[in-house]
Amino acid sequence: MLYAMCFFLFVIGLYCALVKKNMVKIVIGIMIMEYAVDLFLIMLGYRAGGVAPIVGKDEFDAVSGMVKSSFINASVDPLPQALVLTAIVISLGSLSLMISICIRTYEKYGTFDITEIRRLKG
């Protein structure tokens, strides 16, 4: 059910990127798609009643240096979190690139409307 809601959020973003005429709306659609993918990946690693994958002071054996099994059986998946952490920062970089393209286009044509830009181009 929650996975399907994530997918619905993704489809809303895809609709916005495909159908809208405004350039900033297209950028917003791409951002919504990024949020949906991030949420889906984190949900895939969630364990019901789990703890964050950070070892505390009480959760490891001071003699052998190994993590206690109660932590191993309760921790959520750290791998999707690591991948999403890099993806979020990359999304900010690509957002700035897309916004700079939008601003440059507005400087040149005076509008955000992509159909009008196509008409001016000929």
Binding site: I54, V55, F60, G65, V67, I72, P78, L79, T86
Partner: peptide
């Protein structure tokens, strides 16, 4: 393996930092 050995093999308590 990431959860189990992040502290003993890299020394980082935060498993996400150890992975990335």
């Amino acid at each position: 393996d990431y959860i189990e050995q992040s502290l003993s093999r890299t020394g980082a308590a935060n498993a996400v930092a150890a992975v990335i």
